[in-house]
Design a protein around this nucleic acid. Structure first.
Lengths: 331, 331
DNA sequence: CTGTTAGCGCTTTCAT
DNA sequence: ATGAAAGCGCTAACAG
């Protein structure tokens, strides 16, 4: 690899000093138009690219960058959040460096980016201690999960309230036997399945005869479809299903076609997340919607607060977002 | 805003030299365990964060960063590519800084990132000259669009071949009157609608009586649905539709339910892109699939070549990806 | 084990 | 209008 072309090379080639080169390339005035042209030509000829590090090191206005870890690009929930985050972050003057934790382990991803960013944001799966270790002291904003350690902040979603509202609404529409599809995502972080908080709240709130009607599936459309089939086969009198998320719920709606089950007449299906995608299925998906805009704003508020404190270690900040029912056709 | 805590402050607080601080925080050995602890405590107490710029400036192994401009987070086509790109880029040791051009103008986005990255990748809409100006001399890899200027490279998709294959396949399945749904996306870059290349190839290849059966719609599910309805109303004998992309095609499939049209018996619907999402609709979507993996690999190959040349201005490099039919149920 | 000396590549004084 | 000097904050290469 050829040695990097620096400002000195350009200066030499143009027969001027480095400062003059700076003036030329940064459009600073106080420079003869001819020399400027000469310098610019030299830049062109040598293929000179200023080092972004050297420049940022010396320049006053600090560029703030956040690292966003995307759990999955296969679930539109995360990509919709990514889109909202990017737009909102740009508005507030943040750069966003993104890494996927789909193929990479969280600690690795954090480690890779720890030299590049001032704060991390993401839906993290690892436990607090591992994250603290891997983040290299960079503050973390956790999405949909409470924080405890200092330097770790969070924007939570009141899942319990969402589950409560969904069950209540399903009941109000006549459902008597409500089943649930849970995600096996916990297997990504630990070797054994652990019930999701959503399942926990479901079992706590649904009460009585429905309590045990839970099936676990892979977190995808196909997984949701299989889980739905299993649920229907196991509990023939089931008349409503709450899915872990919209992706799985959409899979369930798809599966209902194959099984000859009419939705919502025979079985009502309710998702969780509020994806636009829920409009792609037939019937369109009724769901517990999470306000992604509020989630992202909350995270950015925290990031701004951290920036104002020069990214020191601050006590945990917390925000909470309340989900709400989004009525469409499937329930 | 408090003055930044530097390595010097820590050194002073711990009563050691900067070098010793470096050893402590970077786990370098050759340091007394006690001093190390003392230094680490000082870091903790002062809330010291090493400057990523200073560090990167001095460290040999250059971190390479690419800026990826995402045209839309509402079309899974782009987010699927983003996911593939992130994974593949991480594997090859690239950082990816992402900006959305959904709300931001392309030149602005380029400008924002031009100090942060070594190469740009994206589905660009602006003309070459404007891009060259806005990119500040940083090389560009254009996706699905030919490059011409030096310093601008491209990974193209053989759209014509895809359209040809689709028409031929539709014909082979008995279609006689084929319509097309085009996207109005060109309106984003210029004030008047311009036919997309896909439309151009369609009209060139479909021949005869079908040639004029094109309707333009907004690039979304809803837009595809409306366009489909218009197409059906205008050409009652139409028996197949090629959509601009899968998002619009899915909208068309959705609309078919509302219109009481049986797919594929009465009308065959074929999308373009090959989204996983095409499995969410009923019937599942037959489509011309673009190999996103190849697209991304091609772009990264070019990026690596540029990196090897230290991001100098190289003559245009080009790759081409061929699409292929993905048979599902809607055609 | 620890400190000193040199820079990395750039921009900012301040002279001239 | 241009140049010389002085750093930005950090680490590599030597000393000791």
């Amino acid at each position: 690899m050829a040695k990097r072309v620096t400002i000195n090379d350009v200066a030499q080639a143009a027969g001027v000093s480095r400062q003059t080169v700076t003036r030329a390339i940064n459009d600073m005035g106080e420079i003869n138009e001819q020399t400027k042209q000469r310098v610019l030509e030299a830049c062109q000829k040598l293929g000179y690219r200023p080092s972004r590090f050297a420049r940022n090191l010396v320049v006053r206005k600090k560029t703030r960058a956040m690292g966003y870890l995307v759990a999955s690009f296969r679930n539109p929930y995360f990509t919709e959040i990514a889109g909202d985050l990017l737009n909102a972050a740009a508005e507030r003057g943040w750069h966003v460096v993104i890494a996927s934790t789909e193929t990479e382990e969280e600690p690795n991803a954090l480690d890779m980016l720890s030299g590049q960013v001032d704060v991390f944001i993401g839906h993290f799966m690892q436990n607090d201690e591992d994250l603290a270790r891997a983040s290299g002291g960079i503050p973390l904003v956790m999405l949909e999960r409470p924080s405890s350690l200092p330097g770790m902040h969070s924007v939570e979603v009141d899942i319990r309230e969402g589950v409560r509202e969904a069950i209540q609404a399903l009941r109000a529409k006549g459902a008597r036997r409500i089943g649930m599809i849970d995600s096996s995502y916990s297997l990504r972080a630990s070797p054994t399945y652990a019930p999701s908080p959503r399942r926990g709240y479901f079992e706590e709130l649904v009460g009585g005869e429905s309590a045990g009607m839970v099936v676990v599936g892979e977190e995808s459309m196909a997984g949701g479809g299989r889980a739905f089939a299993e649920l229907v086969a196991t509990y023939p009198d089931m008349d409503a299903v709450l899915a872990f998320n919209d992706l799985m719920a959409i899979g369930a709606v798809q599966a209902s076609h194959a099984l000859g089950i009419e939705v919502p007449r025979q079985v009502k299906i309710c998702g969780f997340d509020g994806l636009t995608l829920g409009e792609a299925v037939h019937p369109t998906l009724t769901t517990v919607s999470i306000d992604r805009h509020a989630l992202v704003s909350g995270a950015l508020d925290i990031a701004d607060a951290l920036a104002a404190a020069d990214f020191g270690v601050l006590p945990s900040m917390r925000r909470t977002v309340r989900p709400h029912m989004l009525w469409r056709e499937s329930a």
